[in-house]
Amino acid sequence: MQKKAGPLFYVFLILFLFAVMFPFLWQMLASFKPPGELFGESAFSIAIKEPTFNNYNLVFTERPFGTYLWNSLAVATLTTVYAIVVSVFASYAIAWLNFKGKTVILGIVLAVSMFPQIATISPIFMFLQSVGLTNSWLGLIIPYTTFALPLAVWNLTIFFRKLPLDLAEAAKMDGASIWQTLTKVFLPLAMPGVFTTAILVFIAAWNEFLFALTINTEESMKTVPVGIAMFQGQFTIPWAEISAASIVVTVPLVVMVLIFQRRIVSGLTSGAVKE
């Protein structure tokens, strides 16, 4: 149905893009308003009388937002690195090597990726508490495995299956060991898929909420989503600061998405579509 688009289509497209972007744009607008302009009539105005950067300032000076960012960055990066390293081997084996039980293994991986987090949290919490790992990075990296590892194994396997298998056969013919095939032939080909999967795992870990909320409760160990969610007090919600903090977190993600959109889309859709 590769038809040329008509003018009506572009009208629709602009409306659609507007709807998709609106909450983000509105939040950005609010982040530059002084708190006074977030109430009353000026709350609905798109013009800012006195634009300010003070909200951004407050987020970093009045609240430990820098600490939250650092914790999120560390936990998400470490989770990604460790999940990718473990799953590159597993996926390579499932996709390229011959042995029995591969379908069962992949089935287990897929099933685990569907586990609701709430079903694993009580034993994980009790375990982490008994070994004193609550309020630490490791205390989050361990439970993040429950979604990071299945996600990585599943995506990498699907990606690796698309790589030309005859190259491996040729390498074997030439007398290369499995290790040589892996490092010399396979990894260079696999890098794009590994990179895409790493982005997906990183975003999943960066956005995680339930484990972070229950396991790291100390202010100095909170991650960004929990930190921002806890900005709201019992009776007041500091919208100006929440907006600024949200924009600080979202802009890097948006930039990342813009740069890597092709890879992300292929990573997201490869598991679901037969090609």
């Binding site: 473990v86 293994i105 694993t120 495995t145």
Partner: peptide, 26 residues
């Protein structure tokens, strides 16, 4: 090839078993 396959899958499978499946049973 078979042994290598199992060896490479083993860490991932073990981790999934201990950190995801065991907690559900628990």
């Amino acid at each position: 090839e078979k042994q290598a396959g199992y060896l490479m899958v083993f860490p991932a499978l073990l981790i999934i078993l201990v950190i995801a499946i065991w907690p559900v049973v628990r």
